[in-house]
Design a binder for these strands. Structure first.
Lengths: 218, 218
DNA sequence: AGCTTTTTATAATGATTGGTACTGAAAGAG
DNA sequence: CTCTTTCAGTACCAATCATTATAAAAAGCT
């Protein structure tokens, strides 16, 4: 009873996400949003509240639609596979061209006006959740013997996130997926190696030449 | 012959830099600038042109005042020292609290409205110059035998920049200098090693246990 | 002293911004 | 059919934005 909504709320949300992803929060005007969604101002307000609530609904949408790789990565059976899955998913999402480039969260989390600072802080908090999840996963890997005993899991989680942020910056600047993938390979190749169980240093396969004592000395 | 300017142009520029560094270009209003500089609108226009020209004068100021470490790093005698100097300088500048956090260039280079896109592209171009300088420096290091023959200098330059961008993001989000320094140590420890000249693997100092053949096999 | 030049400070300007008011249209119930 | 509810579309609103206009003040010259 009453007129039915003509536009598809989910489609409008996807369109809004795409604009926010590209321009960030402050760089996106309400006019941009009405143009991209094809919905007039009151329609968007009626469906989503206001610009800020729409923004966070879009970010949530980004999370559920595009960040599944993170949960998949954290569920991988070993640390190396987890990190690989993470970065592969990351560079795939961050080099999408039709929908967005870089990371929608990062694109709003760097600098803004004083009035928008609370929004930025919320985005930073989301990044922090991801870093914490990595630290927990790495600590589990450490306990399971996948990482050298001296591994600083907080540092390594911070490192992984720093690299990911940097890849996001480069993706937003136009870097190709292939060039980002090469960086990912380097990162994977330089992850702390699993400690060896035995000391047959001269007969073990090549990776066994990586001795934990070298890192302990640091 | 005429009234003398009462404000110090350099001090005003420093104040403007600080605001742009914190809020980015679009997040900084002209009101923010007049407040921070203590100079009225016409005075700022008279001295600097308009908001955009002031922004780039501020970025140039950032370059000359704070990015000397980059030139110093590129002038270091060996690659390892160069990279170390680079990151040490970077995390020092990016964790300054009074003046700014993160990187003033990066803070404006991620996302913005359509009208501001040319400004963003200019900032991206500056980042690209730095990455190119690193690639050239690494290629020189490769020729001088400091890096394994298989080293992909473009990839490594991209990697260094990605890490640096990521450190900037984390610094802007409030990370401490010490936590960034730990990440830097990890990066330095995982740089491609100089190839050994001889094969006295059992008597050389510890770093010599890093064999180029391991990277070649990758 | 008056005159000219340049800066300071306040006010004004037109455009843009996020949000709301209002009217007509659509949908369903009785 | 009328009535009620809800949406669509246009117009409107107050605040903000970068920039300019204007009048007064300061500085130096004659």
């Amino acid at each position: 009873m009453g007129r039915h909504r003509e536009f598809d709320v989910d489609k409008a949300l996807d369109a809004a996400l795409s604009v926010f992803w590209k321009n960030g929060y402050e760089g996106t005007s309400f006019e941009d949003l009405t143009r991209a969604t094809g919905v007039a101002r009151p329609g968007l307000y009626s469906a989503f509240g206001n610009k800020e609530t729409l923004f966070f609904k879009a970010i949530d949408r980004y999370d559920t639609k595009h960040l599944t790789y993170l949960r998949e990565a954290l569920a991988e059976p070993d640390v190396h596979s987890a990190v690989r899955r993470f970065f592969e998913g990351s560079i795939t999402v961050q080099t999408l061209n039709g929908e967005g480039r870089g990371c929608a969260v990062l694109n709003g989390a760097l600098a803004c006006s004083t009035e928008t600072e609370p929004i930025r802080q919320e985005l930073i908090a989301r990044q922090k959740l991801t870093e914490d999840a990595w630290r927990v996963r790495l600590e589990r890997g450490l306990q399971e013997g996948e990482l050298p005993p001296s591994t600083n899991c907080a540092m390594l989680a911070g490192y992984l996130m720093a690299v990911n942020h940097g890849l996001g910056v480069q993706a937003k600047a136009g870097a190709s997926k292939a060039s980002l993938a090469a960086i990912v390979e380097h990162v994977l190749a330089t992850l702390p190696p699993a400690p060896t169980k035995k000391r047959d240093a001269h007969q073990a396969p090549l990776p066994s030449h990586r001795r934990p004592s070298r890192r302990d000395a640091k």
